[in-house]
Design a protein around this nucleic acid. Structure first.
Lengths: 224, 224
DNA sequence: CTAACTAAGTTGCACAGTACCCCTAATGTG
DNA sequence: CACATTAGGGGTACTGTGCAACTTAGTTAG
């Protein structure tokens, strides 16, 4: 079980990695890897519960976006022999830093550059991470996923910025607003008083509104 | 490892099921289930190779559409205790009947009605099958998946019929043709001679053309 | 204080892709 | 022969988006 936990910190899409123990009898000593471990058949009701537990161990985030990414199994991925792993990916707001977690001394956020990360990864985690990034970018083209990268209240511009950071390109402000409003999954936060710090309207996710699918992908004119 | 193998027979979306042995020491004796079994770490390089082997055992189909569906693991799905399975789903043309396969005496095609099948299924296979059907219907809204339900040569009307059978509703002929042609993943088969049996133009999948994603989903006017 | 600047939010037009309705030609059927 | 059926395509309206220009309000520099 491995979990690719994404957030956006300092305007960069980043993934949480942990350092493997440096004991030479463990595979890939000292390398970085996606946080994970074995399923605990006493504590974990099912696979998703196990992924949630791994996430809470590292970040103290309770209700992230969590999706099963896929499974990898072959006789090559672990030097000890045939092995299998279930991979999940999660989106959390910036607040949930690894420092806030429990046993997170060995954890660090790594910014995504291109299709992966600059450090070398253990096992087949480079491939798993690349699949996770592909899936994330692909779904951001036609779903509302990036709301889960923001705190509960946010401005329209901040939401747009999340889309742009994940996609790695700019999107049109006007078309973006039309798209988001007609999908009807966020609601404006009532303005408290006139003398507000921020001039921009705050929004929040509507209660019991899941991931929204837009009828079209983003598609700049020159694309095809 | 379980595989949901779909085809369209007699104008109905159908899934291949196998009957479990009737010995009382096996779980769910006599019930129907998705074809599957344990990974053979000597023969199977990886998970996909294992799924392909299961498919060939039952259908003698060599190059289907095959996609990883997900994994299910919990302490409830098997009465013998915590267990895990990897599920794949496959699309094959009608030609690959189970009778053509090797050890397929216990296999049968079951038509899909609504979200599942009429017979009772073993383990959590009802849930897995429902997930497979959901995924299939969802992807047919915006991809070219149904070509894999047809033989190598087919008419435009037959292709449209595949979309309609999977989706369970009719689609507009004219819009369908525009959509398919502009996606440019099939090519016309040169007409052999004038005195052809069929009046309709035959098409085939372009070589090395994978699954095509359309820029929009089907979306009848009254929808929202 | 005023001017320049910046960010929030709106408006208008063009265009791609689709829904829907209608037409034509060719073939099959009594 | 008349008639029904089917392949194939045309025309129009509409939705969602790309793109650019604009207004308004708050912020900053001088």
């Amino acid at each position: 079980m491995d979990v690719a936990i994404f957030t956006v910190r300092q305007q960069q899409l980043s993934v949480l990695l942990v350092q493997r123990p440096n004991t030479p009898d463990e595979p890939f000593p000292g390398l970085w890897a996606l946080p994970g471990g074995f399923v605990d058949i006493d504590r974990d009701r099912d696979l998703e519960a196990c992924a949630l537990r791994k996430l809470r161990d590292k970040t103290a985030v309770t209700s992230p976006y969590l999706e099963q990414l896929g499974s990898w199994g072959s006789k090559d991925r672990d030097p000890r022999g045939w092995s299998t792993t279930h991979a999940y990916f999660a989106l959390i707001p910036d607040a949930g830093t690894p420092e806030a977690g429990a046993n997170a001394a060995d954890a660090a956020w790594n910014p995504i550059t291109g299709n992966g990360v600059t450090v070398k990864l253990a096992f087949d985690h480079r491939e798993i991470l690349e699949t996770a990034i592909d899936r994330l970018r692909s779904k951001v083209e036609y779903t509302s996923l990036p709301v889960y990268l923001l705190p509960t209240e946010f401005t329209m511009t901040e939401l747009q910025r999340m889309f742009e950071i994940v996609l790695g390109r700019e999107v049109e402000k006007s078309a973006f607003r039309t798209r988001v409003f007609s999908a009807d999954f966020i609601e404006p936060v009532p303005r408290m008083r006139e003398g507000q710090q921020r001039p921009a309207q705050l929004y929040r996710l509507q209660r019991s509104s899941g991931v929204v699918f837009f009828p079209r992908t983003f598609s700049p004119r020159g694309h095809r």
